[in-house]
Design a protein around this nucleic acid. Structure first.
Length: 252
DNA sequence: GCATTAACACGTA
DNA sequence: TACGTGTTAATGC
């Protein structure tokens, strides 16, 4: 056995609300939809927001648990995944700073339909289901934001299907990065995405070594810059469109 | 063939 | 010191 291994969702522990604290003023700027609210709405939200620090491997929410919060990432990196009947985990997307998730479940007041697990130590916040619905009932700005997010996410999942069908390992890495750099869904990610090659491996389901190889290829293609502990995007559209520039198999 | 794990050297925070 | 990167060797499907 390796000296350290990432815990599967099954064995991972779930974060408890009792560990949370109130949000700090300097953390409010990490919430992209706050400035769509008026003063009264904003006051209620700030009062309602809870913040919790999540250790690597811990679950923020678990499949089947009743919905409690609409969650957002202040700092760190999470992954959204599910387990197949055979027990193989399928990753749907990564969640970098600025990302919010669970609105579909919150809207219907149902149980979570996926696991959200921290890939590294992260700062996660959230508002209660009641406050979410209260905002939905009175704030047009909030409604526009949620609608925009649902629409962008739909586009992401359609793109993700293409990756699974057509993707080589290099292409899967490229397209995953294209999703993570999404400026609308994840405004907290600048042109520099803080992610290790190991974390990217967990996200796309490849070994660290294979991810490293893919990143070299993408750097050669001038799509990204590889830096210590992170990646810089140079050509976002190129990443999203990436298909292997490989073979040109000459016909004999 | 292609990806994986294990192991190592090296540089950085 | 602990962590992240880049690389090679051995192994598996």
């Amino acid at each position: 056995m390796p000296s350290v291994s990432f815990p599967s969702a099954r064995q991972a522990s779930t974060v408890r609300v009792s560990r949370s604290r109130a949000i700090l003023p300097e953390e409010l700027s990490a919430i992209p939809w706050l400035d769509r609210l008026d003063g009264q709405e904003r006051a209620r939200v700030v009062d309602d927001l809870r913040v919790v620090s999540v250790e690597p491997g811990e679950l923020v929410c678990r499949v089947g648990r009743p919905v409690t919060y609409w969650f957002g990432v202040i700092d760190g990196l999470l992954k959204m995944s599910n387990d197949t009947a055979q027990g193989m985990p399928i990753t749907f997307t990564g969640l970098p700073p600025g990302g919010w998730f669970g609105e579909g479940t919150v809207l219907k007041r149902e149980a979570y339909r996926y696991n959200i697990q921290a890939l590294r130590k992260s700062l996660v916040t959230g508002i209660t289901v009641d406050t979410f619905h209260w905002l939905l009932d009175r704030s047009i700005g909030f409604n526009r934001h949620v609608m925009m997010q649902l629409n962008e996410r739909l586009g992401q999942f359609i793109a993700a299907r293409e990756i699974d069908r057509l993707g080589s390992a290099n292409a899967r890495v490229a397209r995953s990065l294209g999703s993570l750099f999404h400026p609308v869904l994840y405004p907290g990610v600048g042109s520099l995405l803080r992610i290790t090659q190991q974390e990217l491996g967990y996200l796309v389901g490849l070994s660290r070594q294979r991810v490293n190889e893919a990143l070299q290829v993408l750097q050669q293609a001038r799509l990204i810059g590889v830096e210590y502990g992170g990646l810089r995007v140079l050509d976002l559209d190129g990443l999203r469109r990436y298909l292997d520039a490989e073979p040109a198999p000459t016909v004999a």
